[in-house]
Simulated scan of single mutants.
Amino acid sequence: MRVFIAGATGAIGSRLVPLLVADGHDVVGTSRSADRLSAIDAAGARGVVMDGLDAASVRTAVVEARPDVIVHELTALAGLTPDLKHFDTAFAATNELRTRGTDHLLAAAAEAGAGRFIAQSYTGWPNERSGSAVKSEADGIDRHPTDASRETIAAIRCVEEATTAAGGLVLRYGQLYGPGQAIGRGGEMVEMVEAGRLPLVGGGTGVTSFCHIDDAASATAAAVTRGAAGVYNIVDDDPAPVSEWLPALAAAVGAKAPMRVPAWVARPLIGQHGVSLMTKVRGSSNAKARRELGWSPAWPSWREGFRTGLG
Rank of each mutant, 00 (worst) to 15 (best):
E160I: 07
R116F: 09
G79P: 02
L20C: 08
V207S: 01
T163M: 15
P126K: 06
A250G: 09
R260W: 05
E194W: 00
A228C: 03
A133S: 08
A43L: 14
E111A: 12
R116Q: 12
F117K: 08
S132M: 05
G202S: 00
Q181N: 10
D26F: 11
D236V: 08
F87Q: 07
E191A: 10
E160H: 12
T89A: 15
T208P: 03
N233S: 04
A65C: 03
A252N: 08
V224W: 06
P297V: 11
V48E: 13
A165K: 14
K280I: 00
G131P: 02
R157T: 10
D88E: 14
S33R: 15
M50D: 06
W245E: 14
A222H: 13
W302A: 05
L106F: 07
R32M: 13
G186V: 04
P82N: 14
G168Y: 09
G206N: 01
G184F: 05
E96L: 15
E191K: 13
S33M: 10
R100M: 03
V134Q: 08
A162F: 02
D23I: 08
N127V: 09
V231I: 15
H212C: 09
D147M: 07
L74E: 07
L169T: 10
P239K: 04
A148E: 13
G206M: 03
S121F: 09
H86F: 13
I213G: 09
M50Y: 05
A223V: 14
R2G: 02
H86V: 02
A22G: 03
A162G: 02
L19E: 00
H72S: 11
V275M: 07
V201Q: 06
Y122K: 07
L246N: 14
H72K: 07
